[in-house]
Design a protein around this nucleic acid. Structure first.
Lengths: 207, 207
DNA sequence: TAGATTGTTAATCGATTAACAATC
DNA sequence: TAGATTGTTAATCGATTAACAATC
């Protein structure tokens, strides 16, 4: 029975379910169960069933879940049943790796605009896109109605670029710069900082 | 008053406190408060005080926290008051970006070993390290007693490489491959998958 | 001192799990 | 049918917050 307001922690797990279902489908499997998914993802079967129950009834008692059907449903819920244009800002090493990354295809996103502040980089081609000057960022993002951005630039510029992007209509920001961003409540930010992740594990190391 | 067992969710926030303190110190600030930290990190002051209280009393009533002192304490708690050698596996685009990333310095980690399975890459220099064959991984990781690894390789090889690394003594794995890894309970894994992060936000987009 | 802010307690809030009727 | 597994409820568990005495 669909609920009014779904907890954020539930939403944050749906992409993991989607990824696991895609892996199972790729291995040729047609049906799965909350038990199998839970084992693959290291979580309880009850939690998976509870999470899914926020959105509807996707399985059959005794039978489990049709993988293709559940993938489609989750894709719609997460709004990745379309392709979102993404603006990438900063063409250093990380920006280059992100542009060349093959993993976006078929998962709901495509890099559609690339910006850099370095005049030497502006005008160069990356992937099949021309690198544009950051000066043009607000205008281009508005014109293309881009709502998603990835920041691959040094920390000291991240906040000012963010302010421009938000002003231009961006509502989801994936930030590779190792700084916390301040944004309005309507804008969401996710962070990728490998050192943060390593430090979350080093607490448990010995020697 | 130090507690016996600190919740994992508390540990996972400490690196964020450390990063914020480093930013404040870099701006020349000497003292901060749970209120200021909370505002910068988008969380409540009470939560920060509660988290810190698991490990000791680091502030003074009415005064707040000496930034240098608290940084040192958090560094020790997280065991980044030393430099951990990291083994990097896979020298594709992501591996290259990670090797060249300047952000590890001074935060507790250094890439000490690089492996790739491609004979054309083996023997090449990356940073100041020679790329070694994956065949030698178990021996080198054991010999150097490396406990931390980063996986920058295609998903289909991630689990088999993980098995070798764990067997060789690795206990922390940062996985850039978009697959869930199965590891013994004593081994910790963190994941970096930009698409997962984007999908966690697209749920909240409209249009 | 007066004001500020800590560390800690207790209350609140929310998330996870266990259990099971429903049913494929 | 018998066995399996769902969706859901209620209980449990854990995390966050509010409040405040202590004290710098």
């Amino acid at each position: 029975m669909p609920n009014f307001q779904v907890p954020d922690v539930v939403i944050s797990r749906l992409p993991l379910y989607l990824r696991a279902l895609t892996a199972l489908a790729g291995a040729g499997q047609k049906v799965t169960s909350s038990k199998e998914l839970g084992e693959r993802l290291g979580m309880s079967a009850a939690q998976i069933r509870k999470d899914l129950s926020h959105f509807g009834e996707f399985g059959k008692q005794g039978m489990g879940y049709q993988i293709t059907f559940l993938r489609t449903k989750l894709g719609k819920i997460l709004r990745v049943d379309r392709v979102w244009d993404v603006a990438l800002v900063g063409m250093g090493d990380i920006g280059h790796a992100v542009v060349r990354y093959q993993g976006f295809a078929g998962r709901g996103f495509r890099i559609a605009l690339i910006f850099d502040s370095d005049p030497k980089k502006v005008g160069q081609i990356a992937g099949d896109l021309t690198i544009l000057a950051v000066d043009r960022m607000a205008a281009e993002v508005k014109a293309r109605r881009v709502q998603v951005a990835m920041l691959c630039l040094p920390g000291q510029h991240a906040q000012s670029v963010t302010n421009i992007l938000v002003q231009a209509g961006v509502r989801s920001i994936l930030n590779y710069a190792p700084v916390n961003l301040s944004v309005p409540a309507a804008v969401r930010v996710q962070y990728i900082d490998p050192v943060i992740e390593l430090q979350r594990m080093s607490y448990y190391l010995h020697k």
